[in-house]
Design a protein around this nucleic acid. Structure first.
Lengths: 344, 344
DNA sequence: TTGTAAGCGTTATCAT
DNA sequence: ATGATAACGCTTACAA
């Protein structure tokens, strides 16, 4: 099956009785090749299972056919989903994926990323949230003329450099869901306000609520750290006061899981006494007891679009017009939210 | 800060007033360089922030400084943990990581992996379970002379090609734990018996139990598919019979979570009426209610060791002797297991 | 200890 | 439409 000695462009040229340059033309789909010549070359390529060497190609053409994936996300499930979607696109277009987790809070973070890019020679990078929110990084990449695409939750860049999940709208959907269930005493555990996306969700949520006549009191807006532990902290505060909310929306499923834990310990029944809504549709959102009503971001779609955009940019074909930029999350209703039983 | 035009080995040579060859020697740590010459060159390198081009280096030396990570594991958390550990080692040694999820059940799987390796030009591959159990793949890699290291749960290969988590011993520990708690009616939900590791765990468990005078009846040994859903299936069977076990060990945390769900629906209290033990220490093992007693594999350690072995093999320095091969999982006791209240 | 020159497998320039 | 020939940035015989 597998040919033993590596077959090169020279072999193909010799076999097809043409020059190396012509074979190169065929490989790269140049139109300047005669019909029969092309056929002969293509056959030789197929017959000998020839695959152009990426290193050599890269050296000569200044292109590595490597894409970088830059992230600093504690959510492994999210990363994995993205990776698979990206690789799907890559596989078809002959690219490989090099991963680079980083620490966006450390101050050498920009340099770290730039070093990664130059060391690994990636042709472009995909940037996941929350790193994708870094204005500084985007700027640095632009200056260094490294192609990049950010996956983010708000309109932070030119369309060719970003794909967005519209979380404002998503927040409105959650508010609607809660109102429809009759909840009037609603609390929210927000994400760290240093993140743009967290602010976006907080504003989106409160604003939508206000527009619909639902006011959320100050003490029911708590800032969590997006971790399970911080979810527990905040839930304890919310559930130990005089006045209990009848529903809590958490900025992510991790924290929502924390609420479940506290409610359990406090013997508060979910969803009978308290509705909980999360965000992400983490793998365990469906496994937790009770299972979690949550917002699902169409992660694979975002990743797919982003990759397509990036590769187009790299190949600088007719710029990435035609590739969507915005996708919308949607609500998954499960056990943790139900009709409000409270009679005010 | 960042130099604009790319600085090459020629620039450094010119600046240091030596030949390119000598610079190359310094880059590659050859001892055959004069003290002062080396100093001069090193300074030039540092001053101009020179980094040898990986592509060119690869082309000339037949080495890409790329490592491949091959896996087909539904457990994203595991993958992520491995990736981070691997990258830690890579970063220090100047390698990058290219990821390749695959489908080990499809029959072109071997070819798919070989194609990946030749297309991406990786210098070697790390293989995660369950793919790491494939004898065929290992053989193919050996024949093609591709360096590889497998991460597995049993002694399937030469020490330089594998790192192992000793699961036989781990099983014994679980049996001890259960016996210590007074359980005599113990059931197990095994993994798919097509996997070596599943068989290993099944045998390890039953054998250790038998040795300690605990017999596990046939009908309490159920084969699951390692998924949450299959955990539910099996748990339903186990918990709807006449005779109920007082403890269930599941081959992984996913399935253990399934048991929790079924027990909840059947109003069986955990751990009062039923103890549950999982395997993996998945992220949500600690988040689920009740939290899960489980076996933790020292994933990062395994990954670190594997990467070190692989890179040594690639650089064919004094073969990987001195790098450990076996590490041991350890039990994490949480809420889901407790003293058996049953009076036989 | 250092240098010269010949590749590595492609793409790019410029002819023809 | 096709082909010499020179890059690309580095390593490696082979000299000196």
């Amino acid at each position: 099956m597998a040919t033993k000695t590596k077959v090169t462009i020279n072999d193909i040229a010799r076999i097809a009785g043409v020059s190396k340059r012509t074979v190169s033309r065929v490989i790269n789909g140049s139109p300047l090749v005669g019909e029969s010549t092309r056929a002969r070359i293509e056959q030789a390529i197929a017959e000998h299972n020839f695959q152009p060497d990426k290193q050599a190609r890269g050296l000569a053409s200044k292109r590595s056919y490597l894409l970088g994936l830059v992230y600093d996300n504690p959510d492994a499930l999210y990363i994995d989903q993205v990776q698979r979607a990206v690789l799907d696109v890559c596989a078809n277009l002959g690219f490989e994926l090099v991963v680079h987790p980083c620490h966006w809070s450390e101050d050498n973070f920009i340099d770290d990323c730039l070093t990664f890019i130059s060391r690994s020679n990636v042709d472009g990078v995909l940037i996941l949230p929350p790193v994708s929110e870094s204005k500084t990084l985007a700027q640095a990449l632009r200056e260094a003329e490294h192609p990049y695409v950010r996956i983010a939750s708000a309109d932070l860049d030119d369309p060719q450099n970003i794909v967005i999940s519209n979380e404002r709208e998503a927040m409105a959907d959650i508010v609607d869901h809660l109102l429809k269930l009759g909840h009037r005493d609603v609390a929210m555990i927000t994400g760290p306000q240093e993140f743009f996306s967290s602010r976006e969700r907080l504003e989106g949520f409160t604003e939508s609520a206000r527009n619909k006549g639902l006011n959320i009191p100050e003490q029911w807006l708590l800032e969590g750290g997006n971790s399970y532990e911080s979810g527990i902290e905040c839930a304890k505060q919310l559930l130990s006061g005089e006045q209990l909310p009848s529903a809590i929306f958490a900025n992510n499923d991790e924290m929502a899981a924390g609420i479940l834990r506290v409610a359990n310990d406090l013997n508060i029944k979910i969803p009978e006494q308290l509705s909980v809504v999360g965000f992400d549709d983490n793998l365990f959102a469906s496994r937790v007891i009770p299972s979690l009503t949550t917002m699902r971001r169409p992660v694979d779609k975002l990743a797919t679009l982003a990759t397509q955009k990036l590769i187009r940019a790299i190949q600088s074909e007719a710029s990435s017009t035609g590739i969507e930029t915005v996708v919308k999350p949607y609500l998954i209703e499960r056990e943790s939210s139900a009709q409000c039983k409270r009679t005010t």
